[in-house]
Amino acid sequence: MPELPEVETTRRGIAPYLEGKRVTQLIVRDRRLRWPIPEDLAIQIEDQVFTRIDRRAKYLLMHIGGGVLIGHLGMSGNMRLVPIGTPAAKHAHVDIELDSGLALRYTDPRRFGALLWSNDPMAHPLLASLGPEPLSEAFNGELLYQRSRGKRSAVKPFIMDNAVVVGVGNIYASEALFAAGIDPRREAGRISKARYVQLALEIKRILAYAIERGGTTLRDFTGGDGQPGYFKQELFVYGRGGELCKVCGRTLSECRLGQRSSVYCSSCQR
């Protein structure tokens, strides 16, 4: 599933081709995404100009006309700029044609993504209860410490909770916990403030670095400009269960936490 760095990579990739461009035609080949594409979307965006492309958590916020087109890549979706008239593959559900001669094409084989319309996106049910952005000043170790008090759940699903902080998915939660030396199975409410300060710093560092490197290349995802991300080759634990730890050389362990596979080093993480 594309995580925050992949979504931010997509935003940066498509924004220069959308901002200031007018929509000439909306082509919807299949409305059956996770939530149906609104029937009146063409009325909302045709002949309107994209003014700004933002991101909130894993949602792309495409400001156009009097509202915002909310995009989510789901588990396997992507957005590409293609020349108008480019033949559509099987899962190319939507083309937003622009006056530049390009079209923003949304492709989603599993159809778990979304394209929704809102006049007030921050009040939309999908966004209204989200926690702070991990790269913002609002997110820090003090926040993690305060919100973890009394929590008996493991720390990994705790930091993956979008009500606590957005965008820390499975890959980056695993990597940040390894970098901070924290066992992902540890009870969230029993971790000290000092260790949460370190964890918050590692979350910020790793996410920022992954964004700079173009995200993490997964089976179903490449960056918004069609180029793959380059962070995957630098992963320390995610997807490496049974391999040797790059730091201490011991075999990495694997468990299930919150219905997700979690890889960790029992020697480096306590």
Rank of each mutant, 00 (worst) to 15 (best):
G226W: 08
G226F: 12
I206P: 00
S129I: 02
A89L: 14
G71E: 05
S174M: 01
I27F: 05
A123F: 09
R29G: 15
I70P: 01
E175F: 03
D99T: 12
R152D: 08
R152H: 10
T10R: 01
A128V: 15
R256W: 12
S192W: 11
A103P: 03
G241T: 04
P2V: 08
E8V: 07
G215C: 14
L257Y: 11
A180W: 00
A57Y: 02
M62R: 05
G215M: 12
H124P: 12
N162M: 08
E175V: 03
L4M: 07
V155P: 00
E243T: 15
K58F: 02
P83L: 06
Y59N: 00
V7L: 05
E6P: 04
Y209Q: 14
P38M: 13
R32N: 15
L104E: 05
E19P: 00
Y145W: 15
P121F: 08
G65T: 08
K151W: 05
C248A: 14
H93K: 06
L244C: 11
T222S: 14
L199F: 01
Q25S: 12
L4G: 00
G13Y: 01
G101H: 11
I84P: 04
Y106G: 04
I70F: 07
V82P: 01
G249K: 09
R152F: 06
P125T: 09
H63I: 05
I43K: 15
N119S: 10
P228H: 09
L60D: 03
F236S: 14
L69F: 05
E8F: 02
M75W: 07
I43Q: 14
P121Q: 09
R80F: 06
L26P: 05
Q48R: 15
R31T: 04
A208I: 06
R260Q: 08
G229R: 07
F50T: 06
Q269P: 06
R22A: 10
E175H: 08
T222N: 12
R29I: 09
A194I: 08
R31V: 07
I191A: 03
A173C: 05
L143M: 13
S100I: 14
C265Q: 04
G113N: 03
K21I: 10
K193H: 13
S192E: 13
Y230K: 13
K156F: 03
R186G: 11
G65F: 03
Q269R: 03
G169P: 00
A188C: 09
L130F: 07
I84W: 00
Y238T: 10
M122S: 13
R147Y: 09
F178I: 01
Y264H: 09
D95V: 10
G215L: 10
G65A: 13
R52E: 14
A128K: 14
R149A: 11
L104Q: 02
E19C: 06
R185L: 13
L252C: 12
V247P: 00
L61P: 02
F112C: 09
K21G: 09
N170K: 05
G242M: 13
I70D: 01
S192C: 12
V164M: 07
E39L: 15
L98W: 11
R34W: 05
S148A: 15
T251A: 14
R32Q: 13
G239D: 12
N170D: 13
L98H: 11
R213I: 08
R105I: 04
L135V: 04
D30K: 14
L135A: 03
E46V: 15
G226M: 10
D54Q: 15
R105T: 02
L69A: 06
G167C: 06
Y59K: 00
A154H: 11
